[in-house]
């Protein structure tokens, strides 16, 4: 089955506070693809993500999800589209006054009419999926950073989103934790056909699970490379990209 693009970004320009960070950024993400946004620290990866999901307003350009413009949508339309997103924040961003279980049930309460006990069972299942069975009644302050991150993912998955965004998923995780998370991401994609967009600079993850990636560059304030990681390394067309992905200095010319 030939799937159309899940996300289309055209001519996006973003600024962080008063600084212009990116301009003329255009790319597409296919359905059920694991898509990485990579680049050195401070290049604007997270800013790009925030602009895509509406946490920041782009200076210019448009973002389309399944052919519908998100940038131009009104509040009601936007809410409808947000329902299909999940976002896993860098630090988890769990609501600190709610237990893990309540954190996961809140989106379900907002958007579904399921009975209370059903909602709680789904929340317990989501938490078990990310390896947090038995932690339902813990508060975010009582668990470790890695666990918060996983609980944040459980919450992002609560409504069976068609697109899940990850902001630096492996930051603050040990290598085994990071690998388990990668495995979980693959499993989500393979099971539900979820489109996955990941902001990261973790080379192991990129080489391990990325279908395609774009690499951002500070000097051009835009994309300098796009494609599957293996092809980018093999092609060796752009030294910066190969350097980043192989951690080796590349001499050009």
């Amino acid at each position: 089955m030939e799937a159309g693009p899940a996300i289309e970004v055209t001519g996006l320009a973003c600024s962080y506070q008063e600084f212009k960070v990116l301009q003329g950024v255009s790319f597409t993400v296919r359905t059920a693809e694991i898509f990485f946004i990579v680049g050195p620290v401070g290049v604007g990866k997270t800013t790009l993500l925030r602009n895509m999901v509406g946490l920041a307003t782009p200076v210019q350009g448009e973002v389309l999800f399944n052919g519908r413009s998100f940038t131009k949508a009104d509040t009601a339309e936007r809410r409808e589209m947000l329902k299909t997103f999940g976002l896993s924040f860098q630090g988890g961003a769990l609501w600190s006054s709610l237990t893990l279980s309540e954190n996961v049930t809140l989106p379900l309460e907002e958007y579904t009419r399921l009975p209370r006990d059903e909602i709680e069972r789904i929340a317990a299942f989501r938490l078990a999926q990310v390896g947090l069975a038995g932690f339902e009644d813990y508060y975010p302050s009582e668990i470790s950073g890695g666990m918060k991150k996983r609980a944040g993912l459980a919450r992002a998955l609560a409504l069976d989103p068609t697109t899940v965004f990850f902001d630096e998923p492996s930051a603050g995780l040990d290598p085994i934790g990071a690998r388990n998370l990668d495995r979980l991401i693959l499993q989500i994609r393979d099971t539900f056909g979820t489109t996955i967009v990941i902001v990261s600079h973790d080379v192991d993850s990129i080489l391990g699970i990325a279908d395609r990636l774009i690499m951002l560059d500070r000097e051009t304030q835009g994309i300098i490379a796009e494609g599957p990681p293996a092809a980018l390394i093999a092609g060796a067309a752009i030294p910066k990209v190969v350097e980043f992905l192989t951690r080796r200095t590349v001499r050009s010319g």
Partner: peptide, 10 residues
């Protein structure tokens, strides 16, 4: 980022 987490859920 808890406010962002609310916003992203609409």
């Amino acid at each position: 980022e808890e406010i962002d987490a609310l916003t992203i859920l609409g």
